[in-house]
Design a protein around this nucleic acid. Structure first.
Lengths: 209, 209
DNA sequence: TAGATTGTTAATCGATTAACAATC
DNA sequence: TAGATTGTTAATCGATTAACAATC
């Protein structure tokens, strides 16, 4: 289950270090934290400082960074800028993927208004309002003719199943799913479970009585 | 860190079972799966079937349900309806919380269009477009005069800090956060990290080369 | 009854934390 | 040099899986 990534400290890529799933999930969090430090004109940091900022232990920070393959300087700490660009590189923000949204009008408007695609270096090529079967056909044609990497699925649940059937026959690399349905696909899928999140919040509120 | 919940199988509430954080996070997933079964007119299930549907092990299903305090019947399995209502009860969907959205026009439109609040039994009382300081003042006044439980924070990052300062002085119970900023509050917060999710997807795509 | 399936205890696995030698 | 802080190994903790007796 663990992935191997090239170790940044060595010149050749034969060395590798295993990055666990939980470490991977912390990658974006590291980047946000480091961006915060840079905006604050902090150019030097330590595992202790990062631990405080991120609510983790210093030990865990060192384990993570070491697994990511980025190194600090004993007795000194880490250079924020180096750390930031190294992790950016590991997270692959450099790469240009292309995306298309298929979803409700409101979701398309919301996602288009956010700078999320620009920030990640993903080119949003087109959007399709999933309101009729003809829209699905247009979506299918477009993806087949334009080598799209990522489908952003933000349909109402009633449309999701039809959309998934189409996606199965497309040559795309991944799906970013905002619908409530668990997708059964062989390619990477990341889910945003909006409904689950509100439920989890209510559950926590109830626990506190 | 673990919470204790009343055991449903016993009449009195003195018994309790510890539900770990990872178990809690699976609660909404159980509910979605059970809802699927009910829609399919399946009224009986087993740990093996649930495991298949949810990509977990049968053993884990039984551990979870046992910790939730719901019981099946040896040699038979579980009654879907009973399971569903029991978990609904544990998740506290019955409770009526009130909420207010403070955010961008697009996020307000999107969240209002989804049935998420209705589904969870949360009453959406008002929305405030975070586009000026006067909107923040209106928001503050409204919350102070209307006993609001949940603030849905869907502001642009530039507005988030100001909003958090106001929220700190409100008597609310929890925050549902869609902004990219980690909130520093003493009340329960659930985050929807939209940007992080796209980054995680791109990272996974890069790993696959 | 025989087959099926739970509920629970014990074993395994993975992730986090602690400790400390190495070294800037 | 002395103090600080990394990088890594070993210890701990928690969550998942396996196994099986209990029983419908």
């Amino acid at each position: 289950m663990n992935k191997n990534i090239g170790k940044k400290t060595s010149k050749n890529n034969t060395d590798s270090v295993s990055v666990s799933k939980s470490m991977t999930m912390r990658l974006p969090f590291y980047l946000r934290t480091l961006r915060g430090l840079l905006e604050n004109n902090s150019y030097r940091t330590s595992s202790t400082e990062l631990a405080k900022l991120m609510n983790l232990t210093a030990s865990q920070i060192r384990q993570d960074l070491s697994a990511f393959g980025v190194s600090g300087l004993k007795g000194y700490g880490y250079d924020v800028k180096t750390l930031y660009t190294s992790i950016l590189d590991i997270a692959g923000v450099r790469d240009e993927y292309s995306a298309v949204i298929l979803g409700t009008k409101e979701m398309i408007t919301m996602l288009s208004a956010r700078p999320v695609f620009i920030k990640q270096g993903v080119a949003l090529k087109n959007t399709f309002e999933a309101s009729s079967d003809s829209a699905l056909i247009n979506f299918e044609h477009y993806c087949k003719n334009n080598s799209i990497d990522i489908v952003v699925l933000a349909t109402e649940n009633s449309f999701t199943k039809k959309a998934v059937d189409i996606i199965k026959n497309l040559d795309i690399k991944g799906v970013w799913n905002f619908s409530d349905i668990k997708l059964d696909l062989d390619i990477p899928v990341k889910n945003i479970w909006i409904d689950d999140s509100l439920m989890a919040l209510c559950f926590e509120l109830n626990q506190k009585n």
